[in-house]
């Protein structure tokens, strides 16, 4: 309960920050949209049309009030409600993110586990080095190289993420594989590193020693006593990674011309379409906060130390 209230407080602060960023920093919204050479009267009129000449507090109240009731405002650029654009974009991004997650979570956990089991040996060093390199190379760089190799030279995958209209599920997934790989690369290093650290902690723990000295076979020690304690904390780590994933989406969607939340924000930013930009960014914040909240709850549910508090 307390956790939920904190999340709400965080989100409220976030909305203030986003609003401040979008409305206060540029000063004059109409001027920002029309450019420095536009006629002063045109700027004034635009501001009046958009409602950006009203007091800031009032603007904020209108915006956040609308947001809570599901009215996300009207796009400056399209002169149409924001909501439908946002939903479509979120759905598209979710597909891409899902493909990436389905690839990276098993790979990351497996990689980290193998690295820990072969600690300080060749397998560990290679996995750790690869993970480190993959994590830090920006998505657009690995994306470009992947496009060059698999899209242009080998022609194994399409270089656009968007499947033709009415394509089946498999075709859609096929189009999403290449764009997902840069995201997978960036996340793999994190997840593998966390999984490795968790595994090593569990392997070195006294309870593992107890299990070995009971006479359990090594595979059973790992399976029954180590894995559970090791990989549980990784859950919350995976949840925090969604924020990096979304950051990556912006770039990947631009690179692979995909209509998701990333390209929506990007387009809105380029067109100075502030309502669209605010809604897009706040929705990301909500998604992230909700994900970490769920992960925390899930963690609490799975970890008996939290589930069954102290004594009695």
């Amino acid at each position: 309960m307390k956790r939920l209230l904190l999340s709400v407080a965080t989100l409220w602060l976030l909305s203030v920050l986003i609003f401040a960023g979008a409305r206060m920093l540029p000063g004059n919204v109409g001027r920002a949209m029309l450019g420095p050479f536009a006629d002063a009267r045109a700027v004034e009129q635009l501001n009046h049309e958009l409602g950006t000449d009203r007091p800031l507090l009032e603007q904020y109240a209108t915006w956040i009030g609308g947001f809570v009731t599901g009215d996300l405002g009207e796009s400056y650029a399209y002169r149409a409600p924001v909501a439908p654009f946002l939903w479509t974009a979120l759905l598209n991004s979710a597909k891409l993110a899902l493909v990436a997650f389905l690839m990276v979570v098993p790979l990351g956990l497996l990689g980290g586990t193998i690295a820990a089991l072969y600690r300080d040996r060749a397998a560990d060093r290679i996995l750790s080095a690869l993970g480190l390199a993959a994590t830090i190379v920006p998505e657009f760089v690995s994306g470009i190289i992947l496009i060059l190799i698999f899209g242009v030279w080998l022609r194994w995958f399409p270089i656009s993420a968007t499947a033709p209209e009415g394509a089946g599920l498999l075709t859609q997934v096929y189009h999403l594989i290449l764009p997902a790989i840069p995201l997978v690369l960036v996340l793999f290093g994190y997840i593998a590193r966390m999984a490795r650290a968790g595994m090593i902690e569990a392997l070195d723990a006294d309870y593992t020693r107890t299990a070995v000295l009971k006479g359990l076979s090594y595979p059973r020690v790992i399976w029954r006593h180590v894995l559970r304690n090791a990989l549980l904390p990784t859950i919350s780590v995976i949840a925090t990674q969604t924020v990096y994933l979304i950051g990556g989406l912006v770039v990947i969607e631009i690179l692979f011309q995909y209509q998701g939340i990333g390209s929506l924000i990007y387009t809105a930013a380029n067109k100075k379409d502030f309502p669209m930009l605010q809604a897009g960014i706040l929705s990301i914040g909500i998604l992230f906060t909700a994900t970490t909240l769920i992960a925390d709850l899930l963690y609490a549910l799975l970890d008996p130390r939290i589930r069954h508090g102290g004594d009695e």
Partner: peptide, 28 residues
């Protein structure tokens, strides 16, 4: 060999050490 060692640990020798809170698996 491995199997014999496991058998020895199962039947012939046992150990108890300091800090029992860590010696038991927290999630079982």
């Amino acid at each position: 060999d491995t199997a014999q060692l496991q058998d020895l640990r199962r039947r012939s020798v046992a150990m108890v050490y300091q800090d029992p809170g860590r010696a038991l698996n927290p999630s079982i």
